[in-house]
Design a protein around this nucleic acid. Structure first.
Lengths: 66, 66
DNA sequence: TCTAAAAGTAAAAGAAAGATTACATTTAAG
DNA sequence: CTTAAATGTAATCTTTCTTTTACTTTTAGA
């Protein structure tokens, strides 16, 4: 899976730390997500969708490895 | 978090076992998801979204506990 | 250039997802 | 009513997410 969190963060002018705080996770979790180190839970995806006001499907995408 | 997997399964006439097979998880995983026993990964949410041809946001919803 | 904020990285530990096996209960169809 | 399919449930185990702590590297601004 890949995601556009870094892009959305740029659009909304948010640091990893600020975004992390907004969805109640650690900064490392945001960082690891952006670097595709792991797959986040659906709750996190929904919270990010809410913050960026975009559907989950426009932020997260399945790729070959899924 | 809550979800409408059971409803979508009914619409598409799929058993838990069939859906499980389609997204390569165990039947118990589908069952537990429907009963809100745990939060699935975003990859699973995207696969379910694909199968039911509906956005993740129309199948999975944040609730008070999130 | 110097500094501070931001981002990357990593190890260890805890929490939760998901598999597996197995059995009980419910539902639908004959 | 009987039977088989479907669903619910539970225990144990493995894998993966997520936190915490801490350090390094990069980037932007004074």
């Amino acid at each position: 899976m890949r995601n556009l969190i870094k892009v959305e963060r740029a659009i909304h002018n948010l640091t990893q730390a600020k975004l992390a705080e907004m969805i109640s996770v650690s900064r490392q979790t945001i960082n690891a997500m952006e670097l595709n180190k792991y797959v986040p839970s659906t709750v996190l995806a929904l919270k990010i969708s809410e913050i960026f006001k975009k559907p989950v499907n426009e932020i997260f995408f399945l790729d070959g490895k899924d």
